[in-house]
Design a binder for these strands. Structure first.
Lengths: 346, 346
DNA sequence: TTGTAGGCGTTATCAA
DNA sequence: TTGATAACGCCTACAA
């Protein structure tokens, strides 16, 4: 299919009557090569339309300059923001980025891990699927000291650098805010408890309640996979409880959106009848009506940090046994969905 | 750094006292190998923790089973949806997906092309940057018959398979709808005219007007890069015109959102004073207030199609000289932002 | 049905 | 400062 074969360093070498090694070194700006020959080689390389074959180089150097990224779903603003940040840093550092999505399916996550290992990526950045409860599929990397960086949905039992926001504090602030707005019957739509972030958000919620001498709403703490339809089911369930909620803290914006849409349709007023806080600050949160209060999660910056960390690990600039969990700054953004009229915010 | 060296097919061969080629063949399910030895080899491969080295295989076969994807911005719902679709199909077909973002910068787009070529991707899926007016940076691929598939922001002068929506018809439907709502002074916020999609959307707009015997709003047809701030500038400019617009057709939802926010703030009513139609059906369009009328663009499906096409091209299942432009179905979604009360839709 | 030999394009080592 | 050689791990004619 390919017309002319690619020019290789051997072709250049032959042309100039030098050895392939000299060409290789010259093109890599190896200082051993004299300036004169280096210039000449580069010149001829351009004339001959030489294009380095990274694959061959990768095989030889056992380095691919490629980062693998596994996310649950590419097409989700938070995750695509993280990817965008990763790409930004990776590109500048000369790394390619290979993206895969687990679709929140543990099987697929495992298979992706296998594939990334087979293609010898230099490092992996990962946010676990909703189903992930074990980390054995990642031993492939940890056993061989291939750097692994987690973000957002981190796994407790893997020793690695991790990047999260303060989920506990997020849950605490969100719930405390609802309490300050006068709410007393606060429900929670949460994620699977195998993931630390959802445990933390739940615990923040519980803590805020207990600090205020309140109880969680009986039967009002639900856990699901936080999709749009999960949110829809959840709100229908909550609105059947003997004690109706006067507020809901949702563990993501997606479910909060389902709630808004359902309540709007039922002519239940937000925030007067039910106040609402989400989590993540997806772009729609700002413009939905009523605008959704939420916890800001700096996805792009998390991506920048993840890429920076993994590249430093790959370059051996970071201790291989000494891991840190980086907690990114977060913020409660108060909008209409939780702002009771007449209530003054301290 | 790496502790134990990886097991190779040679290790397995030595273990079983067969040749490496036999191992290679067995692992590839080559029918020449007897079932018995194949089973034994696979067995031992697992026991020894063998992991194929794709890099070596790639070098030998001159195939990487990798698709390169270049988009303007990963973190944009339409593009991340396309990527998601690409990944879905690619994964099932055994391809990895390498993603890069041009940030709408032509320089970066060129450099990415170089890098993708250097890493010998088997095919490239591309949506051009706002700045891209020439296609020479893609000769790298076209000269060597490396498949190239364009989507959305396609370049006219490249012979390749392309996937678009009917942008002309989108512009036509959007504008005609505004006319049917009684609007007569319709402005347009469009994209750079070097890109066919924005020319087509503009032409659709013009056609609808002329069919109705109307003129474009004087000074009311603007072109910019369609960011949030571009939209903001544009609406400010439009609201200073001697003849104010009573409707605006925006070439994307992002600028339409800027318009909504600005008008809301100025207490200008939508759609009573200014009706609005966007393009793309970003997720926020449905929930913003007022909900934004828009042209639906099936990003995920476009990604599926792009991946399918390029993989078929890679596998030689498609003629290499015979290219098609696939026009995906699109649809006008009418929401509050353009729905004048009392007006009945035909 | 299996083995042998050579090469994919680059780089590391050693020698000159 | 440069060259010769071998090797990275796999695959594929060709031979047996």
């Amino acid at each position: 299919m390919n017309t002319k074969p690619e020019t290789t360093i051997h072709d250049i070498a032959r042309e100039l009557d030098v050895s392939a090694s000299t060409v290789s070194r010259a093109l890599k700006n190896n200082p051993l090569i004299s300036e004169k020959t280096r210039e000449k080689i580069k010149q001829v390389a351009i004339e001959m339309g030489y294009r380095p074959n990274v694959v061959a180089s990768n095989l030889r150097t056992r380095r691919t300059n490629t980062l693998g990224v596994i996310v649950p779903l590419i097409n989700r603003h938070f995750f695509s923001s993280v990817i965008s940040g990763v790409e930004e840093v990776a590109y500048k550092a000369g790394f390619a980025v290979t993206i895969s999505q687990s679709n929140d399916d543990f099987q697929k996550e495992s298979q992706i891990a296998q594939a990334l290992f087979a293609s010898r990526v230099d490092g992996v950045i990962l946010s676990a699927s909703m189903e992930t409860i074990t980390s054995q599929h990642l031993n492939l990397f940890t056993d061989r000291n291939i750097p692994l960086v987690f973000f957002d949905r981190v796994l407790d039992d893997v020793a690695a650098n991790k990047i999260v926001v303060d989920d506990f504090r997020g849950g605490l602030l969100a719930t405390r805010h609802l309490i300050e707005q006068g709410c007393r019957h606060i429900a929670h739509i949460g994620g699977p408890l195998n993931l630390a972030i959802y445990r933390d958000r739940l615990n923040g919620y519980l803590k805020a309640l207990s600090q205020a001498g309140l109880q969680p709403l009986p039967e009002g703490v639900l856990h699901n996979r936080l999709t749009r339809s999960d949110g829809d089911e959840a709100i229908r369930q909550l609105m059947k409880l003997p004690q109706l909620p006067d507020a809901i803290f949702c563990a993501n914006d997606t479910t909060a959106l389902s709630v808004i849409i359902y309540l709007r349709q039922q002519k239940i007023r937000i925030p007067e009848d039910v106040a609402l806080v989400g989590f993540s600050n997806e772009p729609f949160s700002e413009v939905v009506s009523p605008a959704l209060s939420t916890i800001k999660q700096p996805g792009y910056e998390m991506g920048l940090k993840a890429a920076e960390l993994i590249i430093r690990q790959i370059n051996g600039e970071l201790s291989a046994n000494d891991f840190t969990t980086y907690v990114m700054p977060t913020e409660l953004i108060i909008r209409e969905s939780s702002l009771h009229q007449g209530v003054v915010i301290a």
